[in-house]
Design a binder for these strands. Structure first.
Length: 255
DNA sequence: ATGGTTGCTTAGCAA
Protein backbone atom coordinates (compact mmCIF):
# COMPACT_ATOMS: atom_id res chain seq x y z
CA UNK A 1 0.00 0.00 0.00
CA UNK A 2 1.43 3.33 -1.15
CA UNK A 3 0.50 6.24 1.12
CA UNK A 4 1.27 9.82 0.09
CA UNK A 5 0.83 13.30 1.51
CA UNK A 6 0.74 16.49 -0.54
CA UNK A 7 0.01 20.08 0.38
CA UNK A 8 -1.43 21.17 -2.98
CA UNK A 9 -1.92 24.87 -2.13
CA UNK A 10 -5.40 25.07 -3.70
CA UNK A 11 -6.91 21.91 -5.17
CA UNK A 12 -8.52 24.04 -7.87
CA UNK A 13 -5.24 25.59 -9.04
CA UNK A 14 -3.50 22.21 -8.78
CA UNK A 15 -6.19 19.96 -10.29
CA UNK A 16 -4.43 19.29 -13.63
CA UNK A 17 -1.20 18.43 -11.84
CA UNK A 18 -3.00 16.36 -9.21
CA UNK A 19 -4.81 14.24 -11.83
CA UNK A 20 -1.62 13.70 -13.83
CA UNK A 21 0.30 12.80 -10.69
CA UNK A 22 -2.38 10.30 -9.54
CA UNK A 23 -2.05 8.55 -12.91
CA UNK A 24 1.73 8.35 -12.86
CA UNK A 25 2.45 7.85 -9.13
CA UNK A 26 -0.52 5.49 -8.60
CA UNK A 27 -0.76 5.96 -4.80
CA UNK A 28 -3.36 3.90 -2.90
CA UNK A 29 -3.99 6.65 -0.35
CA UNK A 30 -3.33 10.39 -0.60
CA UNK A 31 -3.59 12.89 2.25
CA UNK A 32 -4.17 16.36 0.81
CA UNK A 33 -3.82 19.73 2.54
CA UNK A 34 -4.63 23.35 1.73
CA UNK A 35 -7.58 22.57 -0.53
CA UNK A 36 -8.85 26.15 -0.16
CA UNK A 37 -12.37 25.10 -1.19
CA UNK A 38 -15.55 24.28 0.71
CA UNK A 39 -16.82 20.69 0.43
CA UNK A 40 -19.27 21.49 -2.37
CA UNK A 41 -16.50 22.97 -4.54
CA UNK A 42 -14.16 19.98 -4.20
CA UNK A 43 -13.55 18.43 -7.67
CA UNK A 44 -15.15 15.13 -6.69
CA UNK A 45 -16.16 14.00 -10.19
CA UNK A 46 -12.63 14.44 -11.55
CA UNK A 47 -11.07 12.63 -8.59
CA UNK A 48 -13.58 9.76 -8.84
CA UNK A 49 -12.98 9.52 -12.58
CA UNK A 50 -9.28 9.09 -11.75
CA UNK A 51 -10.23 6.05 -9.65
CA UNK A 52 -10.35 7.46 -6.12
CA UNK A 53 -12.88 7.81 -3.34
CA UNK A 54 -12.61 11.04 -1.36
CA UNK A 55 -13.23 12.07 2.23
CA UNK A 56 -13.22 15.88 2.28
CA UNK A 57 -13.13 18.40 5.12
CA UNK A 58 -13.08 21.63 3.16
CA UNK A 59 -13.07 25.32 3.97
CA UNK A 60 -13.52 28.42 1.85
CA UNK A 61 -10.31 30.37 1.04
CA UNK A 62 -8.00 28.78 3.64
CA UNK A 63 -7.06 25.32 4.92
CA UNK A 64 -9.12 22.28 3.93
CA UNK A 65 -7.91 18.66 4.05
CA UNK A 66 -8.89 15.41 2.34
CA UNK A 67 -8.10 11.73 2.02
CA UNK A 68 -8.21 10.04 -1.39
CA UNK A 69 -8.28 6.24 -1.50
CA UNK A 70 -8.57 3.55 -4.16
CA UNK A 71 -10.67 1.37 -1.83
CA UNK A 72 -13.73 2.80 -0.03
CA UNK A 73 -12.78 4.61 3.19
CA UNK A 74 -14.69 3.73 6.37
CA UNK A 75 -15.60 5.79 9.45
CA UNK A 76 -14.79 9.25 8.05
CA UNK A 77 -14.38 11.92 10.73
CA UNK A 78 -13.55 15.62 10.60
CA UNK A 79 -11.66 17.58 13.26
CA UNK A 80 -10.54 16.65 16.77
CA UNK A 81 -13.91 15.25 17.86
CA UNK A 82 -13.52 16.75 21.32
CA UNK A 83 -15.52 19.36 23.26
CA UNK A 84 -14.20 22.42 21.37
CA UNK A 85 -14.84 22.62 17.61
CA UNK A 86 -11.83 23.84 15.59
CA UNK A 87 -12.95 26.81 13.44
CA UNK A 88 -10.30 25.82 10.86
CA UNK A 89 -10.53 22.66 8.70
CA UNK A 90 -7.15 21.07 9.40
CA UNK A 91 -7.73 17.40 10.22
CA UNK A 92 -9.67 14.56 8.63
CA UNK A 93 -9.52 10.82 9.28
CA UNK A 94 -10.77 7.60 7.71
CA UNK A 95 -9.97 3.90 7.76
CA UNK A 96 -8.52 2.46 4.55
CA UNK A 97 -7.72 -1.26 4.21
CA UNK A 98 -7.61 -1.60 8.00
CA UNK A 99 -5.29 1.37 8.52
CA UNK A 100 -6.52 4.49 10.28
CA UNK A 101 -5.38 7.40 8.12
CA UNK A 102 -5.20 10.96 9.45
CA UNK A 103 -4.52 13.92 7.12
CA UNK A 104 -3.27 16.98 8.99
CA UNK A 105 -2.48 20.58 8.12
CA UNK A 106 -0.72 21.97 11.20
CA UNK A 107 -1.06 25.77 11.54
CA UNK A 108 1.93 27.73 10.20
CA UNK A 109 1.89 30.06 13.18
CA UNK A 110 2.56 33.38 11.46
CA UNK A 111 5.21 34.79 13.82
CA UNK A 112 6.46 33.61 17.21
CA UNK A 113 4.57 35.58 19.85
CA UNK A 114 1.45 36.24 17.78
CA UNK A 115 -1.94 34.71 18.67
CA UNK A 116 -1.58 32.59 15.51
CA UNK A 117 1.56 31.01 17.01
CA UNK A 118 -0.26 30.28 20.28
CA UNK A 119 -3.00 28.64 18.19
CA UNK A 120 -0.34 26.48 16.51
CA UNK A 121 1.08 25.30 19.84
CA UNK A 122 -2.40 24.60 21.24
CA UNK A 123 -3.35 22.80 18.01
CA UNK A 124 -0.30 20.53 18.31
CA UNK A 125 -1.20 19.80 21.95
CA UNK A 126 -4.69 18.79 20.81
CA UNK A 127 -3.24 16.70 17.97
CA UNK A 128 -1.17 14.72 20.49
CA UNK A 129 -4.24 14.04 22.64
CA UNK A 130 -6.25 13.14 19.53
CA UNK A 131 -3.65 10.61 18.37
CA UNK A 132 -3.58 8.98 21.81
CA UNK A 133 -7.38 8.64 21.69
CA UNK A 134 -7.12 7.31 18.12
CA UNK A 135 -5.02 4.39 19.35
CA UNK A 136 -1.37 5.41 18.90
CA UNK A 137 0.86 3.43 19.26
CA UNK A 138 -0.95 0.08 19.18
CA UNK A 139 -3.36 0.69 16.29
CA UNK A 140 -2.19 0.51 12.68
CA UNK A 141 -2.30 4.24 11.96
CA UNK A 142 -0.72 6.74 9.61
CA UNK A 143 -0.75 10.46 10.30
CA UNK A 144 0.49 12.38 7.29
CA UNK A 145 0.54 15.98 6.26
CA UNK A 146 2.12 19.40 6.45
CA UNK A 147 3.40 19.62 10.04
CA UNK A 148 4.97 23.09 9.64
CA UNK A 149 7.83 21.88 11.85
CA UNK A 150 11.47 21.43 10.84
CA UNK A 151 12.63 18.50 12.98
CA UNK A 152 16.41 19.08 12.88
CA UNK A 153 19.32 20.90 11.21
CA UNK A 154 19.44 18.14 8.60
CA UNK A 155 15.94 19.09 7.46
CA UNK A 156 16.88 22.72 6.83
CA UNK A 157 19.02 24.31 4.09
CA UNK A 158 20.33 26.99 6.49
CA UNK A 159 19.68 26.20 10.17
CA UNK A 160 21.25 29.43 11.44
CA UNK A 161 18.90 31.49 9.27
CA UNK A 162 15.78 29.62 10.42
CA UNK A 163 16.60 29.12 14.11
CA UNK A 164 14.03 30.86 16.28
CA UNK A 165 11.50 31.10 13.47
CA UNK A 166 7.90 29.96 13.50
CA UNK A 167 8.94 26.70 11.77
CA UNK A 168 12.18 25.98 13.64
CA UNK A 169 12.72 26.60 17.35
CA UNK A 170 13.37 24.65 20.56
CA UNK A 171 9.70 24.56 21.61
CA UNK A 172 8.67 23.00 18.29
CA UNK A 173 11.56 20.52 18.30
CA UNK A 174 10.40 19.29 21.71
CA UNK A 175 6.78 19.05 20.58
CA UNK A 176 7.91 17.10 17.51
CA UNK A 177 10.00 14.75 19.67
CA UNK A 178 7.04 14.23 22.04
CA UNK A 179 4.79 13.39 19.09
CA UNK A 180 7.20 10.75 17.79
CA UNK A 181 7.75 9.44 21.33
CA UNK A 182 4.05 8.57 21.44
CA UNK A 183 4.97 5.79 19.02
CA UNK A 184 5.20 7.26 15.54
CA UNK A 185 7.97 6.65 13.03
CA UNK A 186 9.02 9.20 10.41
CA UNK A 187 9.05 6.86 7.41
CA UNK A 188 11.31 9.06 5.27
CA UNK A 189 13.95 9.27 8.02
CA UNK A 190 13.58 5.53 8.66
CA UNK A 191 14.91 4.83 5.18
CA UNK A 192 17.13 7.90 4.76
CA UNK A 193 18.74 8.57 8.16
CA UNK A 194 21.40 11.00 6.91
CA UNK A 195 20.04 12.35 3.62
CA UNK A 196 19.16 16.02 3.30
CA UNK A 197 15.91 16.29 1.34
CA UNK A 198 13.23 18.97 1.33
CA UNK A 199 9.47 18.89 0.84
CA UNK A 200 8.87 22.66 0.62
CA UNK A 201 10.56 25.63 -1.06
CA UNK A 202 9.39 29.24 -0.92
CA UNK A 203 7.95 30.56 -4.19
CA UNK A 204 10.14 33.61 -3.80
CA UNK A 205 13.84 34.33 -4.36
CA UNK A 206 14.49 31.32 -6.64
CA UNK A 207 14.36 29.11 -3.56
CA UNK A 208 13.79 25.90 -5.53
CA UNK A 209 16.59 26.29 -8.12
CA UNK A 210 18.88 27.23 -5.20
CA UNK A 211 17.48 24.27 -3.23
CA UNK A 212 16.75 26.52 -0.26
CA UNK A 213 14.09 24.25 1.22
CA UNK A 214 12.74 22.64 4.36
CA UNK A 215 11.44 19.16 5.19
CA UNK A 216 8.14 19.86 6.92
CA UNK A 217 5.82 17.23 5.35
CA UNK A 218 5.87 13.75 6.87
CA UNK A 219 4.24 10.33 6.66
CA UNK A 220 4.31 9.06 10.25
CA UNK A 221 3.32 5.46 11.07
CA UNK A 222 2.80 3.49 14.26
CA UNK A 223 5.64 1.02 14.99
CA UNK A 224 4.11 -2.27 13.78
CA UNK A 225 3.04 -0.56 10.56
CA UNK A 226 6.41 1.19 10.16
CA UNK A 227 8.03 -2.25 10.38
CA UNK A 228 6.19 -3.03 7.14
CA UNK A 229 7.39 0.16 5.41
CA UNK A 230 9.69 -0.89 2.60
CA UNK A 231 10.40 2.46 0.91
CA UNK A 232 9.83 6.14 1.50
CA UNK A 233 10.73 9.07 -0.73
CA UNK A 234 10.05 12.67 -1.65
CA UNK A 235 8.80 13.42 -5.16
CA UNK A 236 11.03 16.43 -5.84
CA UNK A 237 10.12 16.47 -9.54
CA UNK A 238 6.64 17.77 -8.67
CA UNK A 239 8.19 21.17 -7.93
CA UNK A 240 9.31 21.46 -11.57
CA UNK A 241 7.30 22.66 -14.56
CA UNK A 242 4.18 24.80 -14.83
CA UNK A 243 2.28 25.96 -11.76
CA UNK A 244 3.75 23.72 -9.06
CA UNK A 245 2.62 23.78 -5.44
CA UNK A 246 5.26 25.09 -3.06
CA UNK A 247 5.17 21.59 -1.46
CA UNK A 248 5.90 18.25 -3.14
CA UNK A 249 4.40 14.81 -2.40
CA UNK A 250 5.99 12.59 0.27
CA UNK A 251 5.33 8.86 -0.17
CA UNK A 252 5.70 5.71 1.95
CA UNK A 253 5.15 2.19 0.68
CA UNK A 254 3.95 -0.55 3.07
CA UNK A 255 4.09 -4.29 2.55
C1' DA B 1 18.00 43.05 3.60
C1' DT B 2 10.62 42.97 5.91
C1' DG B 3 12.51 42.17 -0.15
C1' DG B 4 10.35 38.33 -3.10
C1' DT B 5 5.76 34.91 -5.22
C1' DT B 6 1.38 32.46 -5.29
C1' DG B 7 -3.70 31.88 -4.40
C1' DC B 8 -8.02 33.69 -3.08
C1' DT B 9 -10.45 37.61 -3.42
C1' DT B 10 -10.63 41.94 -5.09
C1' DA B 11 -6.66 45.39 -1.15
C1' DG B 12 -5.39 42.50 1.88
C1' DC B 13 -4.32 38.16 4.10
C1' DA B 14 -1.90 33.82 4.58
C1' DA B 15 1.76 31.19 3.43
Amino acid sequence: MKVATWNVNSVKARLPRLLTWLQTARPDVVCLQELKVPNDAFPLREVEAAGYHAVVHGQKTYNGVAILARTPPAEPRAGFEDAVPDPQARLVAATVDGVRVVSVYVPNGGEVGLPSYDYKIEWLRRLRAYLMRAGVPQRPLVVAGDFNIVPSDLDCHDPARWEGSVLYNQELREIHKDLLNLGLVDTFRLHHPTEQAFSWWDYRNLAFPRNEGLRIDFVLATPALAARCEHAWIDRNERKGEKPSDHVPVIAEFR
